[in-house]
C-alpha cells in the first residue's frame, strides 16, 4: 500500500494542499484513480516489454547479419544461412495480389451498401460482412486447402495460362498451392474490413455533395464516382491500409495454402513462403539460439510494418470522419 501512496503523490495535482488530497483519498476517489491507473499502466508495460523482447531476442541475428539479413536469398538453418529475402518477397507478393483482388471488390460492395441499397438491406448485409470478419483464419485455411487449391489447380490457373500465359507471372506448372492462391485467400479474408470501414466513411459524406452533382446533370454513378468517393477518399485509403496490415500479419490461412517453400520465382503459380508462415512453421522446431533469433527478427520486421501501416490508416480515417462531421 505504501507503494501505491507514493505513486499517488505524483498523480495528485500539485496545487492542491495535502489536506484536500487526503480527503479525496479517504473518500475513495483517489484509491479508485490509482487502482485503475495501475491497470492502465500494465498496458504500457506490456507494449514496452513486447518491443523490448523482440529487440533483445533478435540481437544475435541482427549483430551477425546486419542489413544483409534482408538481401540474402538462402534460408537454410542446417548450414546457418538466414536470408529473409524469400519471405519478404512472398509477403509482399501475396499482399499485393490480395489488394489487387480485394480493393475493387470491397470498394464496389461498400458503394452498393452505402449508396444504392435501401437502409434496411444495407444494415443486414453489413451485419453479414461483420460476421465474415469474425470467421477464424484457420477456417479460411481449411477451405483454402480443400476448396480453393483444387479449384485453382483444375480451373483458374489453367484458364489464366491459356488466356494470359504470355505474362511471366502466369507461367509454369499449376500446383494449386502457391503465391496466387495465398493472395486469393488473403483477399477473401480482408474484403470484410475494406467493406465495413469504407461503408461507414461513405455514409458520412454529406447528402448535399451527392445532390450538387446530380443537380448538374450527373448520373448516379457519376455523382458517386466523381464526388462521393473522392470526398471519402482518406477514409477509404485508411481502410485499405488497415486491410494491408492484416494481410501482412495473417498467418494460418496463408501457411496452409502457400506451399511453404523459400524461393523467389516470377510466376504467381510457384510455391512461396511468408514471414508469418515461416515463424509459425519453424519457431517450435528452432534448435539453436541464432535460428530462434533470426525468426524473432522476422517477427520484429512484421511488427514494424504493421505498426507503420496501422498508424497511417488511423490518421486517414480520423481525418475523413472529422471532415464529414464538420460539413454536416
Amino acid at each position: 500500500m505504501s507503494n501505491a501512496i507514493q505513486t499517488a503523490g505524483s498523480v495528485a495535482p500539485s496545487h492542491e494542499g495535502p489536506r484536500a488530497w487526503l480527503r479525496r483519498f479517504v473518500s475513495g476517489d483517489e484509491v479508485a484513480h490509482i487502482v485503475t491507473l495501475l491497470f492502465a499502466s500494465t498496458i504500457l508495460a506490456i507494449t514496452g516489454l513486447l518491443v523490448l523482447q523482440l529487440w533483445t531476442n533478435s540481437r544475435l541475428s541482427r549483430v551477425q547479419s546486419g542489413w544483409h539479413f534482408f538481401f540474402m536469398q538462402t534460408w537454410d538453418p542446417v548450414f546457418e544461412h538466414f536470408g529473409a529475402l524469400p519471405f519478404l518477397y512472398g509477403t509482399v507478393v501475396t499482399t499485393v495480389v490480395a489488394l489487387v483482388i480485394s480493393v475493387p471488390l470491397g470498394l464496389g460492395a461498400a458503394i452498393y451498401l452505402a449508396e444504392l441499397a435501401p437502409r434496411k438491406i444495407s444494415d443486414v448485409l453489413a451485419f453479414l460482412v461483420d460476421l465474415l470478419a469474425a470467421v477464424p483464419s484457420v477456417i479460411y485455411g481449411l477451405l483454402g486447402i480443400f476448396l480453393v487449391i483444387p479449384l485453382m489447380r483444375e480451373v483458374i490457373e489453367p484458364f489464366l495460362k491459356r488466356t494470359m500465359g504470355f505474362l511471366p507471372i502466369f507461367q509454369g506448372p499449376a500446383y494449386g498451392i502457391g503465391l496466387l492462391t495465398g493472395g486469393l485467400v488473403l483477399a477473401i479474408m480482408i474484403v470484410p474490413f475494406i467493406v465495413s470501414i469504407s461503408r461507414e466513411v461513405l455514409l458520412v459524406v454529406p447528402r448535399e455533395q451527392r445532390e450538387a452533382a446530380m443537380s448538374l446533370g450527373a448520373t448516379r454513378w457519376e455523382a458517386t464516382w466523381h464526388v462521393v468517393v473522392p470526398y471519402a477518399r482518406g477514409g477509404i485509403f485508411g481502410s485499405i491500409f488497415l486491410a494491408m496490415a492484416r494481410a501482412l500479419g495473417e498467418t494460418m490461412a496463408v501457411t496452409m495454402v502457400i506451399g511453404n517453400d523459400p524461393r523467389i520465382a516470377a510466376s504467381l503459380f510457384s510455391p512461396g513462403y511468408t514471414i508469418a508462415a515461416v515463424i509459425a512453421n519453424e519457431f517450435s522446431e528452432a534448435t539453436y539460439p541464432l535460428y530462434i533469433n533470426a525468426l524473432v527478427e522476422l517477427g520484429l520486421v512484421l511488427f514494424l510494418l504493421t505498426f507503420v501501416l496501422n498508424g497511417l490508416a488511423r490518421l486517414l480515417i480520423l481525418a475523413t470522419e472529422q471532415r464529414g462531421v464538420a460539413h454536416s
Binding site: 454529406p206 448535399e208 455533395q209 445532390e211 450538387a212 452533382a213 446530380m214 443537380s215 448538374l216 446533370g217 450527373a218 448520373t219 466523381h226 464526388v227 473522392p230 470526398y231 471532415r323
Partner: peptide, 27 residues
C-alpha cells in the same frame, strides 16, 4: 439527367466539392 442539366439548383448550405475552384465550375 437531362432535366437536371436544364433546371439547375442552388442549395441551402453552400456545398462546393472538395476540389479546386476551377474544377468545381468545370465539373
Amino acid at each position: 439527367v437531362n432535366l437536371r442539366r436544364r433546371v439547375g439548383m442552388v442549395f441551402q448550405r453552400p456545398n462546393p466539392f472538395p476540389k479546386s475552384i476551377f474544377d468545381n465550375v468545370a465539373y
